[in-house]
Simulated scan of single mutants.
Amino acid sequence: MSRLPQRIVCLTTETVEVLYALGEQDRIVGISGYTVRPPEARKEKPKVFAFTTGDIDKILAVEPDLVLTFSDLQSEISRDLIKAGVPVYALNMRSVEDILAMIETVGRLVGAEAKACALVAELEAQIEATRAQAAARIARTGRRPRVYFEEWDEPLISGIRWASELIEIAGGEDVFAEQARSPLAKDRRPTPEDVIAAAPDVIIGSWCGKHFRPERVAARPGWEGIPAVNSGRMHEIKSAVILTPGPVAISEGLPKLLEIFDF
């Protein structure tokens, strides 16, 4: 008799993405309402929770033998599920390396370690290929663009660690790379004056849950002199791509960054 989990609830989209990629989607019996990848998951799987809010009884009703959660943001539901006798595995991806480790961990949890390692190897190969392409561009142009990544606009929040690392892999220089290492959004709040002083060549907007509005960025007092604003190099990467700490951040986020920096 298999002791591997057969009825898994995934409370964030990245573990859903991984289980589908490993061909283990039949184990999923419940997902978060914020799941976006893969698209078919939203049609096939019952939505049993939001992200930080919801009814624990909906989760318990699908009789999970494992619930996958994410970070301290879901600590309360993790606690309540544990009290209810449900096994919980809390993941906490903050870096590119963490994303790759998460894929391997999920693979081990469901007995698909070989497939998980193969997926990680593909993503690692893409990372190295992107580094090589970026290095060739830098050698050709002599330029590594300075990048301001904006995760939120009111208040300003700069990019989280894995986004900052992806910028570096694609040949850019995150102007707030030091702040990106903090897991707390409150530590990633540059002032408008900080951004002006950083003088980024490129601005990337990924406003979680709403469309990036470059015209609003350009209209901020004093920002007209920022090189990125002056040249119109303000780009959106959807938060569902770059701010999801799963395979998509690498498989789709990196190519988009590489394209943006090729000017």
Rank of each mutant, 00 (worst) to 15 (best):
G85W: 13
E151H: 14
P255K: 01
L156H: 12
P190N: 04
E154S: 14
A219T: 02
L73K: 14
P5F: 02
R7K: 14
A218I: 06
E150Y: 09
V120K: 09
E128R: 09
I242N: 05
M234R: 09
S78A: 11
S75H: 11
G142Q: 11
L109D: 01
A177H: 04
P64D: 13
A199K: 14
I138M: 05
T130G: 03
Y148C: 13
V147F: 09
I260C: 02
A135C: 12
R144D: 06
K210Q: 10
A219S: 08
A185P: 15
A197R: 15
E150F: 07
A61K: 15
L166W: 01
K210S: 07
L91I: 10
L60W: 14
E122S: 10
R137I: 04
I242F: 09
R7F: 04
E236G: 05
G253C: 06
N92C: 04
E124V: 02
V86K: 05
Y148P: 15
V241T: 14
P145W: 04
G54F: 14
V120T: 09
V175A: 00
A228R: 04
G54Q: 15
E17M: 06
A132C: 09
D72H: 11
E215D: 07
R144M: 11
T13L: 01
D187A: 05
I196P: 15
S231E: 08
K58L: 02
F49W: 15
F70A: 01
P221L: 00
A249C: 03
F149S: 12
Q6L: 06
L119D: 03
R137F: 12
D153I: 13
L243Q: 15
E40D: 11
T52K: 13
A118M: 01
D201G: 08
W152G: 10
P247N: 03
D194Q: 10
A114V: 15
W152E: 12
D80S: 09
E151T: 12
A219E: 09
R140I: 00
Y20F: 15
V229C: 03
A170H: 12
I204H: 07
V48L: 06
A90R: 14
L100M: 11
E215V: 00
R7Y: 03
E24H: 01
R108A: 01
T12K: 11
M102E: 13
E113Q: 08
T244Q: 10
E165L: 00
C208K: 10
D262M: 01
M234Y: 08
Q6E: 13
I204S: 04
V86T: 12
A50M: 08
G111Q: 02
R94I: 08
A177G: 06
S2Q: 12
R146M: 01
C117A: 03
D55N: 15
